[in-house]
C-alpha cells in the first residue's frame, strides 16, 4: 500500500513530481521552479484564467487549459514549453500590445512594467497585428492616483484586489470584447467614487502603468505586487 496517501504524482515537462492534491498546476510548477508566464495571476487573490498566458498541454485533453485554474490530478501528464504553447504566448502578448495604446517611451512604468518583461521573455520584437488605436480615457479625477485606460490590459487584478482584499469593490468591468473597460463604481469618475478608500492596493496590483500615483515622475514608479499576498497572510494569522 502506498504510504504517501495524501500525495499524488504528476509529470510536468518529463519531470516526475509528488504533490498535494487540490493545488493548481501553476502552484505546483512555481514550487518546483518550472517557469510559467502569467499576467492576471496575483498571489493573494482568486485566479480567473483571464490572460491565457499560462496555457498548458495536458495529455488526453485536446484543448489547452490555463494552469492557474486547473487543479492537478493523479497521473496527469502536463507540458508547459512546447512550440504550440510558445506560439500562443507570443500571439497573446502581441494582442495585448495591439489592443490598447502602449507607448513605452512616455509611460511611467517604463522599465518596471510586467508587460514589457513579458515581451522580452517571449522574444517579441514587433507586432504582427494592426494596432486598434482606440480613443481611451485618462481618469485624473482622484486626488492622488491616475487611471490610464490606454495602458490597461484587462487582467482585472485591481478589481479582485479591491473586492477581495480591501473589500471596497470600487472597481468593476464594463462591456465586452475590445470595448471592455475597468470602471469605478457605476462608470463614474474615480474621484467621485463613494466606495474607494484610496488605499492604493490596486496601484500595487496593476502590472502595467495603467494605475499610478500622481506624486511620481517617469521612471520612478515603484510597485510592490507581493504586498497583496503579505497582507492576506497577515490577516489569516490574526483570526
Amino acid at each position: 500500500m502506498n504510504c504517501y496517501m495524501n500525495t499524488i504524482s504528476i509529470i510536468i515537462d518529463d519531470q516526475k513530481l509528488e504533490t498535494d492534491p487540490g493545488k493548481t498546476i501553476l502552484e505546483v510548477c512555481r514550487e518546483n521552479g518550472i517557469d510559467i508566464l502569467t499576467m492576471c495571476h496575483l498571489k493573494g487573490v482568486l485566479d480567473i484564467g483571464a490572460c491565457r498566458l499560462c496555457l498548458v498541454e495536458i495529455e488526453g485533453v485536446n484543448k489547452l487549459l490555463s494552469a492557474c485554474t486547473t487543479k492537478v490530478a493523479a497521473n496527469m501528464i502536463v507540458r508547459t514549453n512546447t512550440d504550440r504553447i510558445k506560439k500562443y504566448q507570443r500571439i497573446t502578448t502581441e494582442l495585448f500590445f495591439a489592443e490598447r495604446n502602449h507607448v513605452c517611451a512616455v509611460c511611467v512604468a517604463n522599465g518596471k512594467c510586467e508587460l514589457q518583461d513579458l515581451g522580452y521573455k517571449v522574444g517579441l520584437d514587433h507586432i504582427r497585428y494592426p494596432h486598434l488605436f482606440p480613443q481611451c480615457e485618462v481618469d485624473t479625477s482622484h486626488p492622488w492616483y491616475v487611471m490610464d485606460h490606454n495602458r490597461c490590459i484587462m487582467c482585472t487584478r485591481c478589481v479582485r484586489v479591491c473586492n477581495e482584499v480591501e473589500g471596497a469593490h470600487n472597481w468593476d468591468v464594463m462591456n465586452r470584447g475590445h470595448q471592455v473597460r475597468i470602471i469605478s463604481d457605476f462608470n463614474s469618475p474615480w474621484g467621485e467614487s463613494e466606495t474607494c478608500t484610496s488605499c492604493g492596493k490596486c496601484l500595487h496590483a496593476c502590472p502595467t502603468g495603467a494605475i499610478w500615483p500622481k506624486a511620481i515622475v517617469q521612471g520612478q514608479l515603484q510597485k510592490n505586487p507581493g504586498m497583496i499576498n503579505e497582507l492576506v497572510e497577515k490577516r489569516k494569522m490574526k483570526l
Partner: peptide, 19 residues
C-alpha cells in the same frame, strides 16, 4: 531594417491616431 520604436510600432508618432 525598421530602426526604433516609431518604425516598428509607431510609438509616440502614433499617439495622434486616437484622434
Amino acid at each position: 531594417i525598421a530602426f526604433g520604436d516609431c518604425a516598428v510600432m509607431t510609438n509616440v508618432t502614433g499617439m495622434r491616431n486616437y484622434f
